[in-house]
Simulated assay, not measured.
Amino acid sequence: MTDTWLNETLYPDWGQRFRFTRQLARVQSPFQDIAIFETDSHGRVMTLDGVVQITERDEFVYQEMLTHVPLLAHGAAKNVLIIGAGDGGVLKHVLMHKGVERAVMVEIDGEVIDLAKRFLSGIGGDAWNDPRADVIVGDGIDYVAQAPDGAFDVIIVDSTDPIGVGEVLFTDAFYQNAARILTPRGIVVNQCGVPFMQADELAETSRRRAQFFSHVSAYVAAVPTYVGGYMTLGWSGKDAASTRLPVEEIARRAEAAGITGKSQYWSPEIHVASFWLPPYIAKHLP
């Protein structure tokens, strides 16, 4: 039998490939090409426009770090806004926190949600039916522009890179409105790419965020299928102390939130250490 390979198309001169056993779905939505493959090595894999977005095997790294870090750094987040994240993983991890009263998720492409529910059901789990969840198929830019001042404690942006449908989530207008709709100690986090290959992405988005937030930083997570070393998660906040909490305080907050012992990558120690950046990454911050 001839091997069938999925070749990722993120970079023109470097990449990765997955041997897959079958293609489960392929949909051309109004926004992008969506495909889901079955592999022996990584379980099911979702791609958008040929770029790997998530795999069943390592999705926990990205989801845990994108959610637990800002929520525990805030310490009292009740209202959380999620932009993108159509696979449901961020929503599931946000709702693990007992103190969260409302999680609004705005995903522009309903096909991503539908396919994730059908073929990646373990990633979102029961989050779709949680009464605290408000899932909206719509434009996150419009939602943020129209939301009232101080409506959210934490904003989590889980988008593609700043090309195509994800480009508008990296603009001045978006960050300005994000700052407006956050509470006084509010935090927004967003993926900023793999700086070994995408350093301009981190530098440019950091410069933009610094116009509207007094504290701009980044933290890192090692996600195997986001090739090129550490993935950076951009941090924009109104209180610099939120990134300098000791391990003991993060552990206390995790216990109170009800997430202790429920993670595979995140831990209080990893949380604190993730803000200590290698010089090759730190030099791209303001």
Results as ranks from 00 to 15, higher is better:
V112L: 03
H93E: 15
D134R: 10
N129L: 13
I54C: 13
G43Y: 00
I123G: 09
G84C: 06
A73V: 07
D87M: 06
Y62K: 02
E111F: 14
P131K: 03
G110Q: 00
I54P: 01
M96Q: 14
I113V: 15
A103W: 05
I82E: 00
A76Y: 09
D114H: 12
L95V: 10
V61M: 06
S41L: 11
L120M: 06
V45T: 01
L71R: 00
D33S: 14
L120K: 07
H68G: 09
G84Y: 07
A127F: 10
I34Y: 00
M105W: 03
I54K: 02
L72S: 04
K98F: 00
V94A: 03
A116C: 12
K117M: 13
R132Y: 04
A35N: 12
F119K: 11
S121T: 08
V69H: 04
R118V: 11
L66Y: 13
A116F: 06
E56F: 02
K117C: 09
H74T: 10
A133F: 01
N129W: 11
H42V: 11
V61D: 03
A73H: 15
A77P: 13
A73S: 15
D126K: 14
D33M: 14
V69I: 14
R132T: 01
W128P: 12
V80E: 05
A85G: 15
A73L: 12
G75L: 07
A127G: 14
F119A: 10
F37A: 06
A77M: 00
R118A: 15
D58E: 03
A133I: 02
L48Q: 05
G84N: 07
I82Y: 08
T47I: 04
G43F: 05
L48G: 02
G88I: 09
A73M: 05
L66R: 04
G88W: 04
D130E: 10
I108Y: 08
V52C: 14
L71S: 02
I108M: 13
V52A: 09
H97P: 05
R102V: 05
L48R: 01
K92C: 04
D87Q: 03
E38P: 12
E64N: 12
M65V: 04
G84R: 11
H68C: 04
V104H: 06
H93W: 06
E64H: 03
V112S: 05
D40Q: 04
D87S: 02
K92V: 09
H93R: 15
A77F: 10
I36R: 14
D87H: 03
M105H: 10
I82F: 13
M105Y: 03
Y62R: 08
I108Q: 07
Q32H: 12
M96T: 12
M96P: 08
R44M: 01
G43I: 08
L91R: 06
A73K: 11
D49K: 01
I34S: 12
I54L: 15
D33Q: 14
R44Y: 01
E59K: 06
R118L: 14
G124L: 06
L48E: 09
S41A: 14
D49N: 14
L120C: 02
H74C: 00
N129Q: 09
V80C: 02
A35S: 15
A127I: 01
V45M: 05
I113C: 13
R132Q: 08
E107M: 06
Q32L: 13
H97D: 00
R57H: 12
G86W: 03
R44N: 01
A127R: 08
G43H: 05
E56N: 15
V90A: 15
A76C: 08
G124F: 07
E101K: 12
I108N: 11
H68W: 02
L115D: 13
